[in-house]
Nucleic acid binder design. Structure first.
Length: 256
DNA sequence: ATGGCAATGTTTCATTGA
């Protein structure tokens, strides 16, 4: 299974690029974040023409997640949100595909350390950790994939001194990320040797992409049976190039 | 010293993102 996570920063704007990317990369399942589109307006037909069935949970303007599943595969037991956590914001969709439970997440940004949104981010992560623990009991083959809005350690930051203690890098956020890992899922990217300074997000400003001033905040975490099957995990930085890119690049994981 | 981009809707600016 070829499994992808990609924050597209508006599926409306990005649809042509997404469809081109699907054709070039032929993934089996794609977890999308920041679709920023109401369910009634989701581009079901265009994606069907591209060979993918879509399941989605969206809202106007902000947030929104979706799963794209290649024709011939079924998305079963689709669920939305976090059990026991009331949230207006559409940030989670999950399904079982070919025996793999796939949880697509868009973790809150947090805006600034100490803000109300930061508190919400940490609360949200705490609830997701409990949800993950419960889900793993029934689904030992589990992947949680998405935009975590956390750079887990300094290797994931272009300038650790600049970012120290700031949003995405603060110790409470990193501790929240380690709580996910402590539930028994591995950061697939770190299962392999990787080129240094590999990132998944670059600011649109200040020539950040050509200067490679990025962060690695998009992740695919795998439970032990899937980590054993994982043959590669990489970030397609080419998808950040060209006209009207998302500010995030896709993470691509292959499972034998 | 600061902001510098992009997307959205509240649209000719404000808000959010990261």
């Amino acid at each position: 299974m070829k499994l992808v996570s990609w924050n597209v920063n508006s599926l409306n704007i990005r649809l042509p690029r997404v469809i081109d990317w699907l054709a070039a990369n032929a993934p089996d399942v794609v977890c999308l974040q920041e679709t920023k589109i109401e369910d009634a307006k989701f581009p079901i037909a265009a994606l069907a023409d591209a060979g993918y069935a879509a399941r989605f949970s969206g809202q106007k303007s902000y947030n929104g997640v979706a799963l794209l599943v290649r024709n011939g595969l079924d998305a079963r037991d689709v669920t939305h949100g976090i059990d026991g956590f009331v949230d207006e914001q559409k940030r989670v969709i999950a399904a079982t595909v070919d025996g793999v439970r796939i949880v697509c997440v868009y973790v809150p940004n947090g805006q600034a350390v100490g803000s109300d949104k930061y508190r919400y981010k940490l609360d949200w992560c705490h609830a997701m950790t409990a949800h993950l623990r419960a889900t793993l009991i029934h689904h030992p083959a589990l992947a949680i994939a998405g935009d975590f809005n956390v750079a887990p350690d300094d290797r994931d930051v272009h300038d650790p001194a600049l970012w120290e203690g700031r949003i995405h890098c603060s110790e409470p956020e990193r501790a929240a990320f380690r709580e996910f890992i402590a539930r028994g899922v591995a950061d697939s990217f770190r299962l392999f040797d990787q080129p240094p300074k590999t990132f998944s997000w670059w600011d649109y400003r200040q020539l950040a992409f050509p200067k490679n001033h990025g962060l690695r905040i998009d992740h695919v975490l795998l439970s032990p049976p899937l980590a054993q099957r994982c043959t590669s995990s990489r970030i397609d930085r080419n998808a950040r190039k060209g006209v009207k890119p998302s500010d995030h690049a896709p993470v691509i994981v292959e499972l034998a």
